[in-house]
């Protein structure tokens, strides 16, 4: 973990890193079980089921029961990874997440698969762009949005090691492996500065991290030094990193979800009260039109260009 993270070229589906991490954990710990809602395929847990048949619990198409059964399994000494499409897991079973997992302080790991707009053309019922807003409103629930395969695996391991309820948002939108400095470590609640810069800070997570790095590269060519902060943990929030970002005088947030109530909202809440600063929050506005995931990201400026453009505007305002 302390060695440099090898960066392999190509694009990756974080679900693969997720299942590998869960299988690896399960090899060494009998308490690890997986709970699914007929989602063995979409959660890529077929191999887990082959290897640990008694530890794959499929409740069928019943998300409320899935989450409560997960809480019960935790009561019975298990460490359940409850996996389902994040739109159904977090919306249909929201009260179960609140009461049975978070308020009951049960050791349940909730894994929202195919989050954000991964389901593209399937429409707003299948988009999970509200999940961060409603889950970060729940006390005692750790919320993590990893950016790439390495961070996904690290987040899963960290979630297993933490005694308490955790939500991990797992994308199926292809992402590249993020280049990280020697000795990079993942820690829950600790933001990661991937690039330094004092003209503007770009705070992102998940599928927006590589886009923000590309934006920063473009901005550097124009003489704008952009800091890129990967805020993988939304709850608890790394407020020191936000305070430091505010000191640049300009913050852009970007996320594959609603900006209001999401990461952008979280950063804005902190800054409004503690360090008022120019901000631009990039994200989705609400129910979205028909279109592929890629088209939707472009349509709403959730691209390197969109981030760079927002940063330019803020920096110009700051300098004028």
């Amino acid at each position: 973990m302390s060695a440099a993270v090898p960066v392999i070229a190509g694009m990756f589906d974080c679900r693969d890193a997720y299942v590998r991490a869960v299988e690896e954990l399960a090899e060494g710990d009998d308490r690890i079980v997986a709970v699914v809602n007929d989602s063995v395929g979409s959660s890529k847990l077929g191999k887990f089921r082959e290897r640990f048949p008694t530890r794959l619990i499929n409740v069928g198409i019943a998300e409320q029961n899935m989450v409560s059964v997960g809480a019960g399994l935790a009561n019975g000494g298990k460490i359940p990874f409850v996996s389902g499409a994040s739109c159904f897991l977090t919306a249909r079973a929201l009260e179960q997440i609140k009461a049975d997992c978070a308020y009951s302080e049960q050791n349940v790991k909730l894994c929202g698969i195919s989050s954000g707009v991964a389901y593209g053309e399937l429409g707003a019922t299948h988009h999970s762009i509200e999940d961060i807003a409603w889950l970060r409103a729940i006390d005692k629930l750790t919320v993590i949005v990893p950016a790439d395969p390495w961070e996904t695996a690290e987040a899963i391991k960290a979630a297993a090691a933490l005694d308490g309820p955790v939500y991990v948002r797992i994308s199926r939108m292809p992402v590249p492996a993020i280049e990280r400095p020697e000795g990079a470590r993942f820690a829950i609640g600790k933001a990661e500065t991937l690039r330094d810069g004092d003209d503007v800070a770009i705070i992102v997570n998940g599928t927006l991290v590589h886009r923000a790095l590309d934006a920063a590269t473009a901005l550097a060519g124009e003489g704008i030094a952009a800091r890129v902060i990967n805020m993988a943990t939304i709850s608890p929030l790394d407020v020191e990193a936000i305070a430091a970002a505010a000191a640049t005088g300009a913050i852009v947030t970007a996320e594959e979800g609603l900006a209001t109530g999401g990461l952008g909202g979280a950063v804005a809440e902190y800054c409004a009260e503690n360090s008022p600063v120019r901000m631009k929050m990039l994200g989705f506005p609400g129910f979205l039109p028909t279109g592929s995931a890629k088209w939707l990201m472009e349509r709403y400026g959730l691209t390197a260009d969109g981030i760079a453009s927002a940063a330019r505007t803020l920096v110009a305002g700051k300098r004028s």
């Binding site: 029961n65 409560s68 059964v69 809480a71 019960g72 009561n75 019975g76 179960q96 049975d100």
Partner: peptide
């Protein structure tokens, strides 16, 4: 909520 959670506990006991 109680019955679904109870079912989860019983599944753990069964395993």
């Amino acid at each position: 909520h109680g019955l679904p959670v109870g079912v989860g506990i019983a599944v753990a006991g069964q395993i």
